[in-house]
Amino acid sequence: MTKTFKKRPWLTLSALSLGLFVLNVSQGSVQISINDWLGLVGLRAEENPVLGDIIVNFRLTKALTCILAGGALSLGGLMMQTLFRNPLAGPDVLGLSSGASLAVALLVMLGSTIPGYSGGAFIISLGATAGSGAILLIILAIAHRIKDNTSLLLIGLMIGATTASIVSVLQFVSRTEDQHYFLIWTFGSMGGLNWKELIVLGGVLSIGIVLAVSVSKPLNAWLLGDQYARSLGIQISKSRFIIIVATSLLAGSVTAFCGPIAFVGLAVPHLTRILINTTNHRILIPGVLLMGASVMLFCDTIAQLPGSAHVLPINAITALIGAPVVIWVIVRAKKVVV
């Protein structure tokens, strides 16, 4: 497997994503067999309208959400690891996910005290976007004054810790049912989006991906360190600004629509680098997008508990499946570099 991967990484990665996509759509409380698939793509006469509805309006949106969310979080992780030249960085290090969490916690736990507030998934998404956006503005203001990336990383972690503790306080003082609702949100979900929301998410993520590709040269140069990057004519401040904005769009919008998804953004860049051995972001960016989509589809398929009607929280699965895989990969590769 690993050998084929190294020889033909693109073919293998694409096949893997496609296979997992089909598997993901097939799995659920209603199984979809090969015969059904043939019917759906028009190769067989019989049609099953209920099945079509399930696939188009629930399974497809969920699988596409997995692809978008997995790819986006992984790309955000790749950019943060390169920017901070730190293998422990992920898209959440800038405090973006915790900003979103804080906004959602405020809405869920204090919203009931506002007269006329009715809640709802869309308001939650909007709040989460505003939360990560607010943190982004703070980070950018700090990044403007502090030129050292390691300091910025620490500040991001501190902002994350601060918001996390505010969330704890909110949970402590709020009603049990609100706590429960918030807890459900933190579990994460790939299945909550309709086509309209999916298009919005896809649109925002496209901007983030285009921005990321446009800074692939500065990202590469960053691996040599700030001084060398500048000696090669890279405009450090400008590209850092673009990298932060791109990561915020990617991580912030996914958190807004799917909840705070852990692990994927940190782990997928490492998996990708071990399988496609390069430091060139022109190759790494499509690599992490495909790998992130595959990992997310895989985790979501497992979360569906094949053969049963139960669904496990996606956030638990990403860490449960992912962490041992990453440990195994790192132990095999002996060490991890950015």
Binding site: R85, K217, N220, A221, L223, L224, G225, Q227, Y228, S231, L232, G233, I234, R273, N277, T278, T279, N280, V337, V338
Partner: peptide
């Protein structure tokens, strides 16, 4: 320039490193 800064991305190949000079 050739500086004293260490390169942390040690999985980079020598040809990748040299190509940076064309940036």
């Amino acid at each position: 320039v050739v500086l004293t800064d260490r390169i942390t991305a040690t999985n980079m190949t020598v040809s990748e490193l040299i190509a940076y000079g064309r940036y």
